[in-house]
Design a protein around this nucleic acid. Structure first.
Length: 142
DNA sequence: ATTCTGACA
DNA sequence: TGTCAGAA
């Protein structure tokens, strides 16, 4: 199948599909026309990629881990032993990231408190409004 | 009609 | 990641 069909069947944009290939996550063969030719099994590969991406793994890590993962239809199951340590390391990396963000938030909270203290009537402060920005919250990619 | 690559008011 | 251009 060509990229258009894979895109429709997986719900993943053609743009992302080409990007995954650049990252070494997919290796479709080419038709003489230069068009990418995917196989049925690529459908599962793409699903695995999406799952791993949603788990917060980088494409580099996914490239290493992908061939060691098999989809039993419901969940991803590790097929290699060294995979466990690799994933555990990623988990710690993500935990570290969370800690950094938690610290950053705490510092901002203090600064905001100090600002409010010195500016009792700042409810019409354009700078603060801009800083607050459009508080939008996006759902986790799936 | 589809896909490809490269680039970004 | 979207999206548009210019070519095949």
């Amino acid at each position: 199948m060509r990229i258009g069909e894979l895109s429709r069947r997986t719900g993943v944009s053609e743009r992302s599909l080409r990007y995954y290939e650049q990252q070494g996550l997919l290796g479709p063969r080419r038709r003489p026309s230069g068009y990418r030719e995917y196989v049925e099994s690529d459908l599962d590969v793409v699903r695995r990629i999406r799952t791993l991406l949603a788990a917060g793994l980088s494409t580099a890590i996914i490239a290493e881990v992908l061939p060691c993962m098999v989809d039993d239809g419901e969940r991803l199951v590790p097929a290699c032993p060294e995979l466990a340590v690799e994933l555990d390391r990623e988990r710690d990396r993500i935990t570290g990231h969370i800690d950094e963000l938690t610290d950053a938030r705490a510092m901002l909270t203090e600064i905001i408190a100090a600002t409010a203290a010195s500016h009792p009537a700042a409810d019409d402060c354009e700078v603060l409004d801009a800083a607050a920005g459009p508080r939008r919250r996006q759902p986790v990619a799936r």
